[in-house]
Amino acid sequence: MKKTTIDNVAIINIPKIIDEQRRGNLCVIENSVLPYNVERIYYLFDVPSDANRGGHSHIACHELLIALSGSFDVVVKDGENLKTVTLNKPDKGLLIVDGIWRELDNFSSGAVCLVLASETYDEADYIREYSAFLKSKQ
């Protein structure tokens, strides 16, 4: 696994079109917004505020996480450093590259997390034990 760090994790600004007639805003995600093609889209909702999601790393998959509604925290780790990012705006996404451990927690009531993934689901792409993740970073 390549040596990605939390410095490779970035906030992506999603283009927002503001309706001048105040009928609501529109965000557009096209291929030019992401550094990969989207192969899978899924979302998390009805997550209890005391529940944790994530708790894994990917070998190849990149993901963009967006808080479509509400808020939640994303803790990213590279084996040496960690950073917590609060997502709470539907026009900001958190790009998590391969080789980064992620944990999602502190979900607000009504939070919806949209994930745009670079790969289709493949269990072999997941590292689910933190000790195995640390070994993969050596």
Rank of each mutant, 00 (worst) to 15 (best):
K2Q: 11
K3N: 15
T4S: 15
I6W: 06
N8E: 14
A10D: 07
I12L: 10
I12S: 07
N13E: 13
I14E: 07
I17V: 10
I17G: 12
I18M: 05
I18P: 00
D19M: 00
Q21E: 12
R22G: 08
G24S: 03
G24I: 03
V28Q: 04
V28A: 04
I29H: 01
I29W: 03
E30W: 06
N31F: 00
V33F: 07
V33C: 09
L34F: 06
P35H: 02
P35K: 01
N37M: 06
R40S: 09
Y43L: 13
Y43W: 14
Y43S: 10
F45T: 08
D46L: 14
V47A: 09
V47N: 12
V47C: 12
S49L: 06
A51F: 11
A51Y: 13
R53F: 07
G54Q: 06
G55S: 10
G55Y: 05
G55L: 14
H56Q: 10
H56S: 11
S57A: 15
S57L: 03
H58K: 06
I59R: 15
A60Q: 12
C61I: 05
H62Q: 11
L65M: 15
A67Y: 03
L68S: 09
G70D: 07
D73Q: 09
V74G: 00
K77L: 02
D78R: 01
G79K: 01
L82R: 06
K83G: 03
K83W: 04
K83P: 06
T84E: 12
N88A: 14
D91L: 03
K92W: 00
L94A: 10
I96Y: 02
R102N: 14
L104D: 09
N106P: 03
F107Q: 02
S108T: 14
S108I: 06
S109W: 00
A111V: 11
V112W: 01
C113K: 00
V115R: 03
A117L: 09
A117I: 08
T120K: 15
Y121D: 07
Y121S: 00
D122Q: 13
D122Y: 04
E123A: 10
E129Y: 04
Y130W: 01
S131P: 01
A132L: 09
A132V: 06
